[in-house]
Each structure stands twice: as C-alpha cells, then as structure tokens.
C-alpha cells in the first residue's frame, strides 16, 4: 500500500475550509477536525477518460454556435504535471466561464449584463501524452457578487481536472496577470502561500500568441503525485 500512496499537501498549499472573508464558508466548513485517511485502493484508483469522449469543438469555445462570440479571443494552453514533475496524460479538463460581459449562461446568474447568443462558456479537453492541453475561448469579464460591499470577482476561468486517482481530483480557477481585482478577492486570497496564489495566475506568452488572431496564455497545472520511492530518492 505504501508504495502507491499520494503525497500529502503541505500546510499552506491549499486554502482552509473556513475563511471568514469568504462568507459562504461560515455555514459550510467542517467544525470538527478531519480524520486522517490512509490511502487505499479506494483513493488511488479513479475513473479513466479517453480522448474519444471529446467532441471536435469542445476545446474551442468560439466555435460552438453559428456565429463568433463577442470579446477578446484568447488561447489558453499548458501542461498538467504531477508534483514530481511528470506529465499527466489522459487527464480530463473541463472549463467554464462568463462571457466577455461578465455573465454566465446560467439561470441563477442575475448580473445585469448581456448574454451572448454565440457563447455558452463551457469546454472540455483531454491532455495528450505530454500532458498538454489547449483551449480557444474569449477573455471572461469581471462581475459583482454579494460577498461584501462592492465585491467583484476578478476575471477567471473555472478548471475541473481528473488525474489518475480519485484523490488527485482538483477543481480550481485560473486568473489573468495584472488583474487589479486580485488583491481584493477573498477566494484567491484564501490560499496561504504566495507561491500557491501565483500558481493560479496564468502567464501571458508571446510564443503562444498567434499574430493577427489571438493573445496566448500559459497555465500549467500541478496535481499531487505519488510519494517518491526509496529508489527515486
């Protein structure tokens, strides 16, 4: 069992459950200590997804309707690695986001901003043998929320990932470099370590940028990996 276990998160790597500045945590965070669970087959196995499960335009959110969506076209690409630095192939990535005006195509989003008939805001991809994924989309907008007075979420893209095991499951958000709302966002600021917060800010990349077409951003994602064996140390 010990050879197959996954590395535990270090203190400060991950946000806490209770973070009072993010008001919704208060009635939902556990109030009792978690119970340490040794990794068994139940945690180290997980569902397997194949690239065949992905449709042709699933990775291109600008080509899912009759016309092109409004907004700034962007490319978001990167690698999924484990914390040992190894590529994670066949990882299913699902993303969702607002349109350029900051509105989700969701019945419960009441923000007074227009919907875009040519934008759903949902995409899917599976990483290749080198752990690489690529999406084409439009830059999402900032939007207000009710967390505190004059609260605005910075522009972000939600990312959902299945790695190789049930315990490598990750749901997170990608932010944009230089966004002035980042210092005021309790969701991102809940992460104790500055390096962890930086992990969630994509990097503008001129090599990814395509001339006369779209700006490019690099966003690498690191999932927990297996604990090193004595041989590897």
């Amino acid at each position: 069992m010990s050879q197959n276990t996954y590395r535990r998160h270090a203190p400060g790597d991950q946000p806490p459950y209770l973070y009072k500045q993010y008001a919704s945590t208060v009635r939902r965070a556990p109030s009792k200590p978690l119970i340490f669970l040794p990794h068994t087959l139940s945690e180290t196995s997980g569902p397997i997804f194949r690239p065949s499960a992905i449709g042709e335009t699933d990775h291109d959110l600008t080509r899912q309707h009759a016309g092109e969506p409004q907004g700034e076209r962007i490319i978001v690409t990167g690698r999924v690695l484990d914390d040992n630095g190894r590529a994670v192939p066949n990882a299913l990535i699902e993303i969702w986001q607002t349109n350029a005006a900051g509105r989700y195509r969701h019945a419960k989003d009441n923000h007074q901003a227009p919907l875009d008939p040519n934008f759903t805001g949902a995409g899917r991809a599976v990483t290749d043998e080198n752990g690489i994924y690529r999406f084409v989309t439009i830059k999402p907008g900032a939007y207000p929320w009710k967390n505190h007075h004059n609260a605005w979420r910075p522009a972000h893209i939600h990312f959902s990932l299945f790695g190789p095991a049930f315990c490598t499951r990750l749901i997170t958000q990608m932010y944009f470099p230089g966004d002035p709302l980042i210092p005021f966002d309790p969701v991102l600021q809940s992460i104790p370590d500055e390096k962890g917060r930086q992990r969630l800010v994509a990097k503008f990349d001129l090599d990814t940028t395509q001339p006369d077409w779209a700006l490019g951003y690099q966003f690498n994602i690191v999932l927990r990996g297996r604990e090193a064996t004595p041989f590897e140390k």
């Binding site: 998160h9 790597d13 991950q14 946000p15 993010y22 919704s24 690695l81 484990d82 914390d83 040992n84 630095g85 699902e94 993303i95 969702w96 989700y104 195509r105 969701h106 419960k108 989003d109 759903t120 805001g121 949902a122 995409g123 899917r124 939600h158 959902s160 990750l170 749901i171 997170t172 958000q173 969701v187 991102l188 992460i191 370590d193 390096k195 962890g196 917060r197 992990r199 969630l200 994602i221 690191v222 999932l223 927990r224 090193a228 590897e232 140390k233």
Partner: peptide, 22 residues
C-alpha cells in the same frame, strides 16, 4: 533527485458549474 513542484491550489466550484459539469 526528483523535482517537487508546488501543487495547484483548489478553489471553490462556485454556483454556476452546471453549465459545464454535466
């Protein structure tokens, strides 16, 4: 020596995931 990378932190799923996570 194995390179240990800082894992990507989790963030909330938020209230609008239904448009994607079927």
């Amino acid at each position: 020596m194995i390179m240990e990378l800082i894992p990507t932190p989790s963030q909330t799923i938020g209230p609008f995931f239904h448009i994607c996570l079927t």
